[in-house]
Simulated assay, not measured.
Amino acid sequence: MKPLKMYTIPFVGLKQGKHHFEYEIDNTFFEYFEFDDFNAAQLKADVTLDKKSAHLEFHFDVSGTVNVNCDITNEPYEQPISNTFDLVVKFGDDYNDDYIDILMVPHGTFEVNVQQYIYETAVLGVPVKRIHPGVEDGTLDSEILKKLEELSPKEEDDKNKDSEDIDPRWNKLKNLLTDK
């Protein structure tokens, strides 16, 4: 996969200190990664590069909303997300991205592509269980919720079933536990 050029930050010509980069993220960004869990995305990625003499420090802040389907009702809704990530880029002999928050790049590297880090920060900002706000407060009127309510076991039926449908032979076996 060829990296997207707009997410490549050339740091060689930058002075030491903080530098800010802003990116608007939509569905085309996620299509590049073949990620289709979002119906729509309106995200803003703020990337701060703090250039030091021996290394680089990146701070990623991704926030906005994504349109996802509810895990219970499959109804689409707007899920607000906000997530941050810090990355340290050090210089060494070889490229090494084995660590989560440390990236080693060879000496002589003059740019860093941040698209993968923006992608991961955005995707990890979405809750694991996506529940429509209307389900939590009871205002969502959905056929799926009505069917789930209809098919759910009733408490009264369970209590009556336990007391009426017990085979009397089991009661004799229960006495074995109490007769010691």
Results as ranks from 00 to 15, higher is better:
L4N: 07
L56I: 04
D97K: 12
D93Q: 13
I166H: 10
D50Y: 01
P127G: 12
W170P: 04
Q42D: 08
P10Q: 13
H132M: 06
I166E: 15
Y117I: 00
G13M: 12
E156Q: 15
K147T: 13
S63R: 14
K180F: 07
E75N: 07
D71N: 10
G92N: 13
Q115V: 00
I166W: 14
D97L: 02
F58D: 06
G64E: 02
D71L: 13
S63N: 14
T28E: 15
H107M: 04
L43D: 02
Q42W: 00
D71I: 10
T73R: 03
F29E: 00
G134C: 14
S63K: 12
T73Q: 10
M104H: 09
C70N: 07
D158C: 03
V88M: 09
N67Q: 14
K129L: 15
N39A: 08
Q116M: 14
F11P: 04
N96P: 00
Y7E: 05
K161S: 15
P3H: 14
F38T: 01
E22R: 12
I118L: 07
D157V: 06
V112F: 12
L87N: 01
D93E: 08
I131N: 15
K52V: 00
I131W: 09
K90C: 09
K147E: 15
K174V: 06
P127D: 15
E136F: 02
L145Y: 04
L173Q: 04
V62R: 01
A122M: 11
E78N: 11
E150M: 15
A122V: 06
Y32G: 00
D93K: 14
N69D: 14
L145H: 04
V114Q: 10
L177F: 09
D101E: 11
D86S: 09
E120C: 05
M6T: 10
N160A: 12
E143S: 13
K147D: 08
V114S: 04
L103F: 08
E34H: 13
P133K: 07
V126P: 01
I9G: 05
C70E: 02
Y119I: 03
E31M: 04
D46R: 12
D46M: 02
S142Q: 11
P106R: 15
E22C: 13
M6Y: 05
D93I: 00
D46C: 06
Y119L: 13
T84Y: 00
L14T: 09
L56G: 03
I100N: 10
L43Y: 02
L140Q: 07
D86V: 02
